Amino acid sequence: MVRLTRVQQQKRTRRSVLAAAREEFTEHGYALAKVDRIAERAELTRGAVYSNFPSKRALYLAVLIDMVENATAGEPPMTSPMTPAEALGVFARTWLERLPLVGDTASGGRLHLRSLVGVLDDEHGRTVLAQVVRLEALLLAIALESCEPAHAMPVRRVRLAELVLTLLDGSGHLAESAPGFGDPFDLARACEHLAGIDLTDTWTPSYLPYVAPAQPCGDTWDPPTGLADQISGDRVDFGADGLIAVLGAGRLAAAEEAVRSARPGEQVTVAIVTDDSAETGRLVRLRITDLIGCLRHVFAPEVWQRVRLVLDDEALTASAIGLTDLDDETEAAVHVQGGAIVARAHGRGAAYAASTADASNGPQPRSAQT
């Protein structure tokens, strides 16, 4: 009973800090916000704030995550539009709702925009953000690819997704410095028209022929429990046959490799790990949660039924498959069949190696085109 009371108190303290921090960031912006003033607003000590959030950046990211989660809670899934152009129009209009209004204060507008300008002021933060955007483009692309007619040849839509995100993020940066400039309806129509551009998009990584073979094995394992899929919100069943890729925050672009090289009909689980959950982990969570919130306005959850995305802050997945010494450059994968791990791979190309491995004859060549 004492433990439950302590947990409840910790939750109340956290809520008070987040509410006070949101007021501080809205009033003063990120750069001029002070942790001492946040503590005063929450009627707590400076130490109490830092015991929950180790830095101002971690607190700012937590405030944004709280805003995004509250904004997307309880949204009903929608039926996927018929064409990629229609889908991009709805997606763009949803995304553009975050743009600051002319009457917003500068600081309040930046917070509503989920602005990271001046927040990621180091090389590591920018590198991770670049990798997260690559993952965002993949998730949007998978949804757009589902809009193609069932009888049509498979089409990769990652370059289209990257172009759309570039346009939308660019409009956000411009709106931050010049609120009210640009018509959101024009931007949405522009995104629709981008679907008609022939980008000659294929997935043919040049390094695949040189990927080291996976190690065949027959290891029993104890799958982790209680982890949720960030896309559907459902609990992940790690016991199902399929590919499990464990990626550090600096290797998120390899998620496409896992998706494209997985065997037909098998599940693909991407577990993201980091050695800095307070800042790097929160940055990944913020961006992915925000994007998925927009995607749920447009696409039904079944679009990503073969792909599961786990934000594994405690590295439970990595531990279950025997990984240690994790960092943002981690890249490893295992292939699970019949409740056992039948192949293991590490390093660049790990997902491809594990998925294409043959337990008796080693890796088999597979088409890279999807």
Score class of each variant (00 low, 15 high):
residue 1 M to V: 04
residue 6 R to W: 04
residue 8 Q to T: 11
residue 8 Q to C: 10
residue 9 Q to N: 15
residue 10 Q to L: 12
residue 11 K to H: 14
residue 11 K to L: 15
residue 18 L to K: 09
residue 19 A to C: 11
residue 21 A to S: 14
residue 34 K to G: 05
residue 35 V to F: 05
residue 40 E to G: 06
residue 48 A to N: 07
residue 56 K to F: 07
residue 58 A to I: 07
residue 58 A to F: 04
residue 59 L to G: 08
residue 61 L to F: 09
residue 66 D to E: 15
residue 69 E to W: 03
residue 71 A to K: 12
residue 75 E to Y: 05
residue 77 P to H: 02
residue 78 M to W: 05
residue 84 P to N: 04
residue 85 A to V: 01
residue 87 A to E: 00
residue 95 W to P: 01
residue 96 L to E: 00
residue 107 S to Y: 11
residue 107 S to V: 12
residue 111 L to R: 09
residue 122 D to L: 09
residue 124 H to N: 13
residue 124 H to T: 15
residue 128 V to T: 12
residue 130 A to R: 13
residue 131 Q to V: 04
residue 131 Q to S: 13
residue 133 V to Y: 12
residue 134 R to I: 03
residue 139 L to G: 05
residue 161 A to F: 13
residue 162 E to Y: 14
residue 162 E to N: 11
residue 164 V to R: 04
residue 173 H to R: 12
residue 175 A to Y: 00
residue 175 A to C: 02
residue 179 P to V: 02
residue 183 D to L: 00
residue 183 D to E: 07
residue 186 D to Y: 00
residue 201 D to N: 08
residue 202 T to C: 13
residue 207 Y to C: 03
residue 212 A to C: 05
residue 213 P to H: 01
residue 214 A to Y: 02
residue 223 P to G: 08
residue 232 S to F: 09
residue 235 R to N: 10
residue 240 A to G: 12
residue 243 L to C: 09
residue 248 G to D: 05
residue 251 R to T: 09
residue 253 A to V: 10
residue 256 E to S: 04
residue 268 V to H: 09
residue 272 I to C: 08
residue 283 L to Q: 10
residue 294 C to F: 10
residue 300 A to K: 06
residue 300 A to T: 12
residue 301 P to G: 06
residue 304 W to T: 02
residue 309 L to Y: 05
residue 324 T to Q: 11
residue 326 L to T: 07
residue 336 V to I: 14
residue 341 I to L: 08
residue 343 A to D: 00
residue 351 A to W: 01
residue 353 A to R: 06
residue 355 S to C: 05
residue 355 S to D: 06
residue 361 N to G: 12
residue 361 N to H: 15
residue 362 G to T: 02
residue 370 T to V: 13
